[in-house]
């Protein structure tokens, strides 16, 4: 199923994984400061697959059966794409409890509190992670606001018409342990074929900078 060799070499994949590791570490540190907990990071695993293989990859590897929570955020630039953060359906209440909202806050957030909190968590993690990644690659990006969906079926229908069959998904699988709550999540970036070249070029420049 995995088709990583067609996008990046083994060394490029290792370097991207290391950069994603650094970027996600920064994102986790920012989240930990905001909600005053520690985020235990697992060993991250990076793979790249073709976009049409992504639903099978996710459903086969994550404990998500039919529904999940999705935060998506588009970033634009030479290596632009869409970042998705996926959590199991039901995790929204875990996130909500971590923010220790008082009654007034909950009233202000109204019935949409779960989605608002999920979008905020996604914004912090995606924003810090993607920013750091492309900062390390010296390839700037700009963002559209994040969009959170609770209880979305994740499958072919979700992607239909949005991406071409040649587009690639750069998947970072990682687990979060937030205080006593264990929430496993996936962060992945979907980039079109044309952005693979600039990413490869940026990786080569990064290696050169250490020579």
């Amino acid at each position: 199923m995995s088709n990583k060799s067609s996008f990046f070499t083994e060394d490029e994949t290792d370097a991207l994984q290391e950069l994603m590791n650094i970027a996600f570490g920064k994102a986790a540190a920012e989240l930990a400061e905001i909600i005053d907990i520690s985020v235990v990071l697992s060993f991250p695993k990076l793979e790249t697959v073709k976009i049409q293989e992504l639903p099978d990859f996710i459903s086969g590897d994550l404990s998500i059966n039919t529904k999940c929570n999705i935060v998506e955020q588009t970033y634009k630039g030479e290596a632009g794409g869409v970042a998705f953060l996926i959590f199991p359906f039901g995790s929204e209440s875990d996130f909500l409890s971590l923010f220790h909202l008082d009654e007034e806050d909950e009233l202000e957030l109204f019935a949409d509190a779960d989605r608002e909190i999920l979008a905020e968590v996604g914004n912090i993690l995606i924003g810090a992670c993607v920013s750091k990644l492309f900062d390390l690659l010296k390839s700037p990006v700009i963002y559209t606001p994040p969009h959170a969906i609770i209880g979305q079926e994740f499958g072919d229908k979700f992607f239909k018409g949005r991406f071409s069959g040649d587009d690639c998904a750069i998947i970072l699988k990682t687990s979060f342990f937030l205080s006593e709550k264990s929430v496993e999540g996936f962060l992945f970036l979907v980039n079109n074929q044309s952005s693979v070249g600039p990413i490869k070029h940026a990786l080569a420049k990064l290696f050169e900078s250490y020579e």
Partner: peptide, 9 residues
């Protein structure tokens, strides 16, 4: 030498 730069870590 780490990416986990949290204060608690």
């Amino acid at each position: 030498l780490t990416a986990d730069i949290q204060r608690t870590t």
